[in-house]
Amino acid sequence: MAAATNDRRIDYVEFNVGNIEASKAFYRKAFGWSFTDYGPQYCEFDDGRLKGGFTTLGTPRPGGPLVILYADDLETALSSVERAGGTIVKPITGFPGGRRFHFTDPDGYELAVWTKN
């Protein structure tokens, strides 16, 4: 079976924000982005080319959005991250629409990997 064209590529960018409504208002006014709400703690943005999210589930980190990669096989991706020297900081967990884990790279950057399965 051939891998999907988005396997192991950057797929999504997530911002931890203090106030989702204020963030939506800013990005709508500044750039014309559209939004889909998924409850009081999460909303997805669409800039017309790339989708991402605003969440209040983390701590806002100015200058530090969460870059999210996609993987067809999440467990294999997790093993690859560990073998490469990454540190798992949030184990695989489910969310509406899929599952994901977070890791830090050798320089301390936190990224996530998700899958629909």
Rank of each mutant, 00 (worst) to 15 (best):
S34H: 13
G39A: 09
F26N: 06
G32K: 00
I20R: 00
E14K: 13
D7K: 02
F35Q: 15
D7V: 02
F35D: 08
F15I: 05
P40G: 12
G39R: 08
T36N: 11
D11M: 00
F35Y: 10
T36K: 09
V17R: 00
P40M: 13
F31N: 06
K24E: 15
V13C: 14
S23C: 14
D37C: 13
R28D: 07
G32D: 09
R9Q: 10
D11Y: 00
K24R: 13
S23H: 06
A30Y: 00
V13I: 04
K29H: 08
E14G: 08
V13T: 10
R9N: 08
S23L: 07
K29R: 11
R8M: 15
K24A: 07
S34F: 10
R8H: 05
D37I: 15
E21F: 12
A30I: 00
Y12E: 03
Y27F: 07
D11F: 00
E21D: 07
W33D: 04
A30E: 03
D37Q: 10
D7R: 01
S34P: 09
R28W: 05
F15C: 04
G18P: 01
V13L: 15
R28C: 15
A25S: 05
F35T: 11
Y38R: 08
Y38V: 12
Y27M: 14
F15V: 06
G18V: 04
S23F: 04
R8C: 10
A25F: 01
Y38P: 11
G18F: 03
S23M: 15
R28H: 10
W33K: 02
N19W: 05
G32P: 00
F35P: 13
Y27S: 09
I20H: 00
A22M: 07
